[in-house]
Design a protein around this nucleic acid. Structure first.
Lengths: 206, 206
DNA sequence: AATAAAACAGTACGCTCTGATTGTTTTTAC
DNA sequence: GTAAAAACAATCAGAGCGTACTGTTTTATT
């Protein structure tokens, strides 16, 4: 069906324009007019593919987060294959995902969903899915020196929270060098708590 | 001047209503109409005290953040007087500030300011001031075992980033017990890197 | 080839928001 | 006590938004 793929391409174009608008103009600056102008489509096209603005935002959210999940597959696979260490994992998580330009759109959506139940009900499952995927992979890669399996998940949640907090900077923009220092320091603090299964055994605390 | 304090009281009432709206409705749900309705004042009163919406938001921001700074004074003083440890500091920072209901308004403003230069130029200095105040107090309370004075500031920045990331939850709402676990774990990881000046000397790394 | 359906284009309408304006009350100053 | 200024009240106009609607083109079906 050639029409099917044309249709999907149109949906994608509009959704990408919406994502760009979220990054550059924020949620409350992203009107349907500006989004459709940036996409190069017509109002009618948008109306056809996304009957309401909610549908548009939700559609853009799905494309955005699905893209995140899809693009994280090869990175995670590479991680497992090369037995990469925790510091490098943190660095990549920052570079490719949470520190990336597109994540600003995710932040906008997460923030907007706090006071928009309908949006929240659509965002939460996808977000949780991504978190679960990463947690599962991590649990396979690392294990806690304390023997508690929930320990790895806890540390991963903390890692995500830290990176999120860095992406949503307060005050002046954090210089990249400062960010790098924090990521390194964090990895340094956490690494002794993790061990590669049946490889090395670092004690977590003296 | 009795008029002066009446005026300030009116300003405060409207600004507080704005803060409440930010918490409950988010930035893009906080119209001047809803804010003024919640404040119990009239449009004209608001118009008088805050000529434009920008003025209102900026005014609310100042009151919000000044309140944060003012309320943190006794806590910091208590901290110094009682020589409280790092875990308790983290817990209080969360309980009274970053984990509090009002901080959701700060998050809304920080997020909005990303794509609103004028708002950003007003928010950044106050936010930086708060950060500097805390950093300075911390530098007085703790010192790094490595001897590097910038180390304490780095760890405080990381602490703030982590708490910020927790306040801006992704996915489903974090259960308080999980938050507490993370805060405890974080304090556990960082504490060995800090020392009370001329009291005890824990090595940071084995 | 003919018909139906999907995709796309452009316009118009109703609504809400903001900022401005005009009028009224209260407070301060002389 | 009176005049001026500040504070407050109420209404209005303009702009921008989302969406419904009508018309046109393209694609799929038979």
């Amino acid at each position: 069906m050639r029409q099917e793929e044309k249709s999907q391409e149109a949906r994608r174009r509009i959704a990408e324009a919406a994502i760009d608008c979220l990054v550059e103009l924020g949620y409350h600056g992203s009107s349907t007019t500006r989004i459709v102008e940036r996409s190069g489509m017509s109002r009618g096209a948008m109306q056809h593919h996304f009957p309401s603005k909610q549908d548009l935002i939700v559609g853009a959210t799905d494309i955005l987060l699905e893209g995140v999940i899809r693009r994280s597959e090869p990175l995670l696979a590479d991680l497992e294959a090369r037995r990469i260490g925790f510091p490098e994992l943190v660095e990549r998580l920052w570079k490719h995902f949470i520190g990336s330009r597109r994540y600003q759109a995710v932040l906008e959506l997460m923030n907007a969903s706090r006071t928009d139940p309908e949006l929240q009900s659509r965002i939460t499952p996808t977000l949780d899915r991504w978190n679960r995927i990463i947690d599962e992979r991590m649990a396979r890669l690392f294990s806690s020196v304390s023997g508690d399996p929930s320990e790895v998940a806890l540390l991963m949640q903390m890692t995500r929270a830290l990176l999120r907090g860095l992406a949503l900077r307060d005050g002046g923009p954090l210089p990249p060098a400062m960010v790098r220092r924090m990521l390194e320091r964090w990895a340094q603090l956490v690494e002794p708590c993790l061990s590669w299964p049946a490889e090395k055994e670092n004690p977590c605390r003296s």
